[in-house]
Design a protein around this nucleic acid. Structure first.
Lengths: 65, 65
DNA sequence: AAATAATGTAAATAACACTTTACATTAAAA
DNA sequence: TTTTAATGTAAAGTGTTATTTACATTATTT
């Protein structure tokens, strides 16, 4: 699953550390999500969504396969 | 996190078994999600979302706390 | 160029999502 | 009312999400 986290962070001028604190996860978790190492849990996705004031679908791109 | 799975299933006349097969998880997983035992993973939430043709936000209700 | 901030990555561990098997309860149909 | 379908639940196991600590690399500032 792809995501626009890095771009959204850049647009709003946040570091991975900043975002991690706001969302309530570790910096490594944000990094791993950005790098596509794993997908966030649904609760984490919701927090990211609310933080950027964007629907989950506008941040995460699910493609079947 | 609350969800409208049971209602959506009823509206479309699907059993937990039906939904489980369509989504690609076990019936117990659907049951557990409905019963609030745990939240689905983001990929599973996306599959449910696409199946019902509704945004994730219209199916799952995240409340902070 | 040297110091500092930001990011990438890894190992060990904990917590959670999900599976299978199995059985009990509830609802619906014959 | 007896059978069958649907749902609820539990235990044991697997894989994934997230944590902490720690260090290396890449940018940015000074």
């Amino acid at each position: 699953m792809k995501n626009r986290l890095k771009v959204l962070r850049a647009e709003n001028d946040y570091t991975q550390e900043d975002l991690a604190e706001f969302i309530g996860v570790s910096r490594q978790t944000i990094n791993a999500i950005e790098k596509g190492k794993f997908d966030p849990s649904l609760p984490t996705a919701f927090r990211i969504s609310k933080f950027f004031k964007l629907p989950i679908e506008d941040i995460f791109d699910y493609e079947e396969g």
